[in-house]
Computed example of a mutant assay.
Amino acid sequence: MSRTRPAALAAALLTLTTTALAATTGTAHAAHAAHAAHAAHAATVNYVALGDSYSAGGGSSSTYLNSCNQSTNAYPYLYAQSTSPATFDFQACGGATTTDVVNNQLAPLTSGTTLVSMTIGGNDVGLRDVLASCLLGSDAACLSAVSSAENTARTQLPGELDTVYGAIRSRAANAHVVILGYPRFYDPGAPLCPGISPARRAALNDGADVLNSVIQSEAAKYPNFAYADVTSRFAGHQLCDPAPWLHALNWPIGQSFHPTAAGQAGAYLPALEANG
């Protein structure tokens, strides 16, 4: 019996070791297979990034790639770096309207395009003028500017979005299109927010909600279009929070209320990843 116990123990240890090795090898093989599948998928992705400054990356850097204020901190660039698509065409440009997208950004779209992302609509409703009124004017001027922008969003923007969405679908019939929204700028629960009144903060948030609602409703009309909400992703990082992911008053003023590098990486990039 004294000789069989060590033998049995050795056999048991050998079995456990073999089982553990097999499990480890299986896990490694599974991880390798997942990585290979991800790489194979990325190799078939042809990605085109359209839109305005929120997609170009305005406000996310102190230096830019070109006159469109495209930044290497912008979510399309970060997405391309992390996924290594077969092709990546960065067309988004600061100040762009829906008309600018149709006239200047759609050339790379083809039947081979598989992924398109875009933020658009803010400049069509005069966001820059609204910001100037709310940052530099009175409460009355701010509320009037927001109300006018909301009216434009409800009455004119749907047709403008239909034009650009239809053009994208026509040129890239096989693409999955991710339309990203805009942040709510202020944390309504922040106890202190110097420099801007509660009325103006609430008005700007309401204006963002109206804009996003119109964008989402129009995107829902198109096959293979997905609306990606970013408002919840900025929660805790809005203006007047301890670590905001948005600029307040910034120079040039057009970059005010735009995402910082942290906002691009922490809010916009995950929104695209979740819907891309």
Rank of each mutant, 00 (worst) to 15 (best):
I196F: 06
Q70A: 00
A267E: 02
H247E: 05
Y227L: 07
P76N: 07
Q91L: 03
N224Q: 15
G51W: 02
Y186W: 11
T27P: 02
T231Q: 11
A261L: 10
N123C: 04
Y222S: 05
R5N: 11
L14G: 13
A10I: 07
T19M: 13
L180E: 13
Y165K: 01
H41S: 14
A172R: 02
A140D: 12
A153M: 07
L136R: 11
L143A: 04
N212Y: 10
V214Y: 10
N103Y: 11
S147M: 01
N104V: 00
T163M: 09
H38C: 11
G181K: 05
C240H: 00
P158W: 06
A23N: 08
A37N: 13
A149W: 06
D209G: 15
N123T: 04
H41E: 15
A220H: 08
T4R: 12
S147C: 02
D241V: 03
Y186F: 15
G236H: 07
N174E: 08
T72A: 10
G57P: 01
L249D: 10
H35T: 14
L109E: 00
C142T: 01
A23H: 10
N73E: 08
F225A: 06
L246C: 02
T98G: 02
H41A: 14
S256Y: 03
A34I: 10
A49N: 02
D124E: 13
D100K: 04
N46T: 15
T15R: 11
V102H: 00
I179C: 08
L65R: 00
L14F: 14
V230I: 14
A271G: 08
E160S: 12
L246K: 04
F234L: 07
S111M: 07
T98R: 03
Y182D: 08
T44E: 11
F90N: 00
L249T: 13
T25A: 15
I215N: 07
A172C: 08
Q255T: 13
N151F: 13
A140T: 15
N212G: 12
L13E: 03
R154P: 01
Y182H: 03
V210F: 06
L272M: 12
D162R: 09
V210E: 06
A42H: 09
V178W: 03
S232I: 09
G58Q: 06
E218P: 03
A199H: 07
T4C: 12
S55W: 00
N212A: 11
Q156N: 13
L106Q: 04
A11C: 09
T19S: 14
N224H: 15
S2P: 09
A141Y: 00
A42I: 08
C142F: 02
V230F: 04
S55E: 03
S170C: 09
H237A: 04
V125S: 06
S256N: 04
Q105I: 01
A243S: 13
S232C: 07
Y79R: 14
P158S: 01
L109Q: 01
S117H: 05
Q255C: 12
P85V: 09
A267M: 10
P191Q: 05
D209V: 15
A56F: 01
A22C: 11
F88I: 02
D129L: 12
N69E: 11
A132N: 14
A153Q: 05
G137P: 01
P76K: 07
I196Q: 07
T19G: 14
